[in-house]
Design a binder for these strands. Structure first.
Length: 664
RNA sequence: GCACCCGUAGCUCAGCUGGAUAGAGUGCUUGACUACGAAUCAAGAGGUCAUAGGUUCGAAUCCUGUCGGGUGCACCA
């Protein structure tokens, strides 16, 4: 039983009372958590609202406090309510009955899957190089949001879009073919050689990509090669495309390995090549023309282009108000393809991909990838797409094209509307100037004067995800070793891995989405203060209490609380009970925090909850000795509260993708 | 020029659809380990919530202007 259930009952009772006894219809009743636990567990500022409404109807001025006095008995009639008090100018503060709350079973949420499917696209790293910390923010945000949605009971499908036919892949292909003069066989041989040397393929491509970028600067003919290469890759069915496919697929494998280290997994990898070859765009184009969503420009500078009118932006001489979807040479822009893809995700396109099994995770979960070939073996193929709602995790710099996609789809399918497509937008990860220098980059005076430096894949400026994870694991290993010199190296490694993941995921989740994360090594590598490690440590500590308790201590505690309700409540009234209720109360707020995270699409809310819960537990922990407590009633309460806290904390951390080690 | 985001403690950030005395972390000063684990805890100092108005019982939060910063606005992806 969570507080959210209580709140819902109280709110509807309030609405009924306002309707029947005061003759006022309250649309939504605001409830809030009082600033201090001494002020109760739930507060309704509704008396102010009612005073205003009653004045409007009757013309008589009403005192909010007097109204609150009338409401209090209604709320007090619930068995889970201990008392109700009127505070200040008319706040109605509700105190839940503590003994009765602790007597209820912890029972975590019911597994009621909500009917419709939600599709979340995240990661979508260009498959031409290793992932950096900016990509990881995307993935961690997306993955955590998926976990939050699932925790709230939604059916979620995870897609990682693979732009395997884009310019960035073409760049690396140009590097292999024209700078290094390698053909497919030689690249495969190189790949084998790299494996032996312990260098991952995506790291090699990272450097190659930078080299190509530099080579373009003083070799015009190479730029022509790029256009040529891009064209061949898009067209498919030639040696260049085959080579590009190998390079892109190997990078996808590497990136998936990186993400696996962070417990991030996918259901489907849709590729751009299939969107092209299975003619998704042509289908969407026809529908858009039929529905009059786009028009062919006959004059002006966009003559010969198909554009989508876009009124919300003012045009100017330099910038157009309309968005071009088909160029005057007849080719489709990225945004055009994206509209077709979005339509597919929502089950509106009337075409489907073909699928090939890509890999299986160690838990047996399959990952599928799209293909244009007819496939025979489709055992276990799930139904992809056809989502009720789609979240695209993409950084804020792509807000404009995302808006075009959303509006475009809504224009063709007004019955689904704009709400079906959500751009889960977040700010970029940039580097602090000192971090950039630490990576060995020379900064201009201009860069150094800025508060941050943007990462650049093209320049090779960025913190590679695997490097950072390695560093975190190494630091964690040293810490574990100093604390537990007796355990095996394998166990130390396993623990330090969990710590590293906890540290990194939390670091990226503690900032709200629209905050630019200015990456700084010291901060990112910290294991103290507001970190994932702090939360993990708290849970480990709580668990270690229960390792020392006997099972019957816990069951006895439950029985004791049921039998001695008066004594339990008396404990909370006395000084002895100080600091116990705040953790218990906070532990009961996981469900509402999840609901809030879903409503605002903001995982940071849950991360903050994990930290606050940990802090509350630590406070409680330092105030009370649980195992040694002599008073049987108090001991029972302490055990029950500690058990609830560690359960809530463990579940919260799991939803953040953070595991709790046995010891650390 | 236009659109979106941001401006809160020395620094980095929270602050939910408006609600009670604006909170954390970090840094600084001090104190607590023969332990249910010090990756912890406690105490102290630190704020004209950029600025000027408006809306109302009530504004860090909503609206408008101003100043300062970021990001977009390709027949690139």
């Amino acid at each position: 039983m969570a507080f959210l259930d209580f709140q819902q009952k109280l709110t509807s009772a309030l609405a009924d009372f306002a309707r029947s006894d005061l003759g006022v219809e309250l649309e939504n009743i605001a409830a809030e958590v009082p600033p201090k636990t001494e002020l109760g567990d739930l507060a309704f500022p509704v008396a102010f609202e009612l005073a205003k409404l009653l004045k409007q109807e009757t013309g008589e001025k009403q005192n909010p406090r007097a109204i609150a006095e009338k409401i209090a008995p209604v709320l007090e009639s619930f068995d889970f309510v201990g008392k109700v008090s009127i505070a200040g100018p008319g706040y109605i503060n509700v105190y839940y009955d503590r003994a009765s709350f602790l007597a209820r079973s912890i029972k975590t949420k019911e597994e009621a899957i909500q009917g419709s499917k939600i599709c979340v696209e995240h990661t979508s790293v260009n498959p031409n190089k290793a992932a950096h910390i900016g990509h990881v923010r995307n993935s961690v945000l997306g993955d955590t949001f998926v976990r939050i949605l699932r925790s709230a009971g939604f059916d979620v499908e995870i897609q990682n879009y693979i732009d395997n036919t884009g310019v960035q892949v073409a760049d690396v292909v140009v590097g292999f073919m024209h700078l290094e003069k390698k053909d497919l066989e030689q690249i495969k041989a190189l790949d084998e050689q790299l494996k032996e040397e312990g260098i991952s393929f995506d790291f090699y491509c990272w450097d190659l990509y930078t080299k190509v970028g530099l080579a373009y600067q003083d070799d015009e003919s190479l730029k022509e090669k790029r256009a040529e290469t891009l064209h061949l890759i898009e067209e498919g069915g030639n040696e260049t495309a085959e080579l590009a496919d190998y390079v892109a697929t190997r990078n996808v494998e590497c990136i998936l390995d990186t993400m696996e280290r962070l417990s991030i997994r996918y259901d489907l990898l849709p590729r751009e090549s299939e969107i092209l070859h299975l003619h998704f765009w042509e289908k969407a184009f026809t529908m858009m023309k039929e529905r009059g969503a786009i028009r062919l420009e006959e004059k002006g500078k966009n003559a010969g282009c198909w554009v989508m009118p876009f009124e919300s932006h003012e045009g100017s001489d330099e910038h157009d108000t309309d968005k071009i979807l088909v160029r005057s040479n007849g080719t489709v822009t990225y945004t055009g393809k994206d509209i077709a893809y979005q339509m597919w995700k929502l089950g509106l396109l009337g075409l489907d991909f073909r699928y090939r099994h890509f890999t299986t995770y160690e838990n047996g979960q399959d990952v599928w990838i799209t293909t244009s070939k007819e496939m025979n073996d489709q055992a276990g193929l799930p139904e992809f797409g056809r989502a009720e709602k789609v979240y695209n995790v993409i950084d804020t710099r792509q807000s404009y094209p995302q808006e075009v996609v959303k509006k475009g789809v809504a224009l063709i399918f007004p019955e689904r509307g704009e709400d079906a497509s959500v751009h889960l937008s977040y700010e970029m990860v940039a580097l602090s100037p000192s971090a950039a220098e630490e990576l060995g980059f020379e900064l201009s005076d201009e860069d150094r004067s800025k508060s941050f430096v943007e990462m650049s894949g093209r320049k090779g400026l960025g913190v590679k995800a695997d490097d950072l994870i390695d560093r975190l694991e190494k630091d964690a290993f040293n810490e574990v070793e100093s604390r537990h010199p007796d355990i095996s190296d394998d166990e130390k490694k396993a623990i330090s891995h969990q710590i590293a993941v906890g540290a990194l995921r939390y670091f990226l989740l503690k900032f709200t989405k629209n905050t630019v994360v200015v990456f700084d090594f010291k901060e990112a590598l910290s294991f103290e203060g507001e970190t994932g490690v702090y939360c993990q440590y708290t849970a480990v500590r709580a668990n270690s209490i229960f390792r020392k308790l006997k099972d019957e201590d816990v069951t006895n505690a439950s029985r004791m609380i049921l039998e001695k309700r008066d004594a339990v409540n008396a404990l909370f009234e006395s000084d002895e009970g100080e600091g116990i209720w705040p953790v218990a109360a906070l532990s009961a707020r996981l469900e509402e925090t999840i609901a809030q995270s879903v409503a605002t699409a903001e995982p940071a809310t849950l991360a903050r909850y994990a930290f606050n819960l940990s802090k509350a537990f630590n406070l409680f922990y330092h105030h009370h000795r649980i195992i040694d407590e002599k008073d049987p009633v108090k001991r029972a309460v302490l055990i029950s509260v500690a058990d609830r806290s560690r359960t809530a904390l463990t579940e919260t951390l799991a939803t953040l993708g953070i595991r709790v080690p046995e010891r650390m």
